[in-house]
Amino acid sequence: VWQDRTIASAKLRLLEYSAFLETQRDRETYKHLFVHIGPSNPGYNDPVLESIDVRQIYDKFSEKKGGLKELYEKGPHNAFFLVKFWADLSSDIEEGSGVFYGVSSQYSGTENITISVSTKVCSFGKQVVEKVETEYAHMEGGKYVFRIHRSPMCEYMINFIHKLKHLPEKYMMNSVLENFTILQVVSNRETQETLLCIAFVFEVSTSEHGAQYHVYRLVND
């Protein structure tokens, strides 16, 4: 039931994903979520994910070695997803010292393996920065869980968010975001098998309810 309705391949499922900033004020912690995919528990009555032809977005990600095209051709195709985020940039938290920018994510899988998580930021389809993290499995409730907890956001991303937030109009932010993408590839560290590949694209949220998203399967018909 998960495979057609959530970000899940045959071997790995994304449980949660968030990019946030956090600060302490008057002994209380304030957290603002830029983007967030919360836990879900879909049933057979829920609709299956819509599809997008992967060729429509190849040029938005690196087309060099290790780019989306090469990865998709290697497969497995059921591991490829696109997430359209409507990011919440409405935070009024003051920038500066004492503010922590982080990314947390959680995955669950069927095998006791070590995963490698590569996050590539692309500007105009060209990779500008990459972070590679290694995570080990923890057995929880009969499944293997992988947790990347409060991974610090890189300087490039923090500066990017600052500049984006200071643009006067939302259409200007969306114009910048049109050429900004992130590719996350989770692979088995030993075998290099792709377990999950998520292409992120962005707009700015106009909602009062914070960050929103749509998930699509990437196909090649």
Binding site: E50, S51, I52, I57, W86, G125, E178, T206, S207, H214
Partner: peptide
């Protein structure tokens, strides 16, 4: 230098791609 890309609006994408969900 940046290569000019086809705008996302001109690509074959589902209608929902442009519709921000009300709530998630």
């Amino acid at each position: 230098c940046a290569v000019e890309q086809v705008p996302m609006r001109k690509r074959q994408l589902p209608a929902s791609f442009w519709e921000e969900p009300k709530l998630t």
